[in-house]
Amino acid sequence: MLAFVLLIAEVLLLDYSKVSFWLLFIPTLLVVAYQLWWILPYTKLYSQEVAQTYDLDDINSIKIMTANVLMTNKNIEKLVLLIKENKPDVLVTLEN
Rank of each mutant, 00 (worst) to 15 (best):
M1G: 14
L2Q: 09
A3P: 00
F4V: 10
L6S: 03
L6I: 12
L7N: 02
I8K: 11
I8F: 11
A9Q: 08
A9V: 14
A9Y: 11
E10Q: 15
V11Y: 11
L14S: 15
D15A: 05
Y16K: 09
Y16L: 11
S17A: 07
K18C: 03
V19E: 13
V19P: 00
S20F: 06
S20G: 01
S20W: 04
F21G: 07
F21P: 04
W22Q: 01
L23R: 09
P27W: 07
T28F: 02
L29D: 00
L29T: 15
L30W: 09
L30R: 03
A33H: 01
Y34K: 08
Q35S: 09
L36W: 06
W37V: 07
W38Y: 08
W38P: 00
L40R: 01
P41H: 02
P41M: 04
Y42G: 03
L45R: 03
L45W: 13
Y46W: 15
Y46D: 01
E49R: 07
V50C: 04
A51D: 09
A51V: 14
Q52C: 04
Q52D: 10
T53H: 08
Y54D: 07
D55S: 08
D55T: 15
D58M: 12
S61D: 03
S61P: 06
I62K: 14
I62L: 15
K63N: 08
I64C: 05
I64M: 10
I64P: 01
I64N: 02
I64W: 03
M65T: 01
T66Y: 08
A67I: 11
V69T: 12
V69C: 12
L70Q: 05
T72C: 02
T72N: 10
N73D: 15
N73H: 08
N73M: 04
K74H: 10
N75D: 12
I76G: 03
E77S: 11
E77P: 00
E77T: 11
E77G: 00
K78C: 04
K78Y: 12
L81Y: 09
L82E: 14
L82C: 10
I83H: 01
I83F: 04
K84V: 05
K84S: 06
N86G: 03
P88V: 05
V92Y: 02
V92C: 12
T93D: 00
T93F: 01
L94E: 10
E95P: 00
